[in-house]
Design a protein around this nucleic acid. Structure first.
Lengths: 154, 154
DNA sequence: CACTTGCTTCGAGTCCGCTCGAACCCTCTA
DNA sequence: TAGAGGGTTCGAGCGGACTCGAAGCAAGTG
């Protein structure tokens, strides 16, 4: 992996918190990351990062003098946000649409907020659905516990 | 839709409970359903039902004298269970494996219970993940509320 | 200087979970 | 008896989200 500055970047534990806090691996000003560093940091592959850029899911990523991508802290923040949207179950196409709204600037703040609130509604519904699923699964597991006891193997 | 017996089957509301309770549309003994009835009852398409059978995700479905599938209440129960597993996020291939265990009979009770408990663990993790995602999303929405206020449009 | 490593682009390939088109067969009703 | 409206099989096609192979360039190392 090409490390750009000093501090070689350490990847966070798998499935770690992708949420709010800043705390970037490098301070603003020295925040240049190669694609493989970003891959390590985000858990995405370099393929996926390039593809995200290609489909318009990333803002314009900077390039070095020889054409290599240089990600910065703002890119990391954006990717963390994309990660959140992905976890909500939002399709990539919708994320691209959201990215377009961001590119269009302040005029789309209302629409963006609406999108996020709709997404939150769907997420809440999904969580509820999974909780119901958990209940059903628990029933089934209890049934198995009973069945095993009945057949004399528990 | 070909209705087989008396009582034309009424499909439940979308996203309704797919869990434990019996309460079949027709009592045992008169429980024969055409594929399109089952589609209406489960929300799956007839295509998907045939495909499920083909890949071994259904037990042997009965056939009428002229080769048409005849589902019964046990099939509906199984499909409800498959629906639960699907909601847990279990891949179809794993569900097929589970169906095989069921076919193998009582000897696989232990293994089946283990599978279900593992699945429950994954489901719990997923629910936690979604709750974290919700927290992150709430942050972002709050941020948008602030941004809109600051730009004088809220 | 050759080599390795890591990046670049491009288009193609993969995996999953369906979804469908085509050709055909029954049965019921007009 | 003709046609409509189910159903059947088979294999192909699709949408989504990546994933990769090939060919090439640039910088660092023995």
């Amino acid at each position: 992996m090409t490390v750009i500055d000093g501090t070689p970047v350490k990847s966070p534990a798998v499935g770690s918190c992708v949420s709010a806090g800043p705390a970037h691996p490098r301070p603003d000003g020295q925040d240049r990351y190669t694609i493989s560093e970003v891959a390590a940091l985000t858990g995405l592959t370099a393929y996926t990062l390039r593809w995200y850029e290609q489909i318009g899911l990333m803002p314009q990523v900077q390039r070095s003098h020889n054409g290599q991508r240089l990600f910065d802290n703002r890119d990391l923040d954006w990717l963390a946000f994309v990660g959140t949207l992905r976890l909500t179950g939002m399709p990539v196409a919708d994320m691209v649409r959201f990215a377009e709204l961001v590119r269009q600037g302040e005029d789309t703040l209302d629409e963006r907020q609406e999108v996020l609130e709709r997404t939150r509604g769907e997420l809440l519904a999904r969580i509820g659905e999974l909780q119901d699923t958990l209940t059903a699964l628990n029933f089934k597991i209890d049934f198995y516990a009973g069945a095993r006891r009945a057949s004399g193997r528990a």
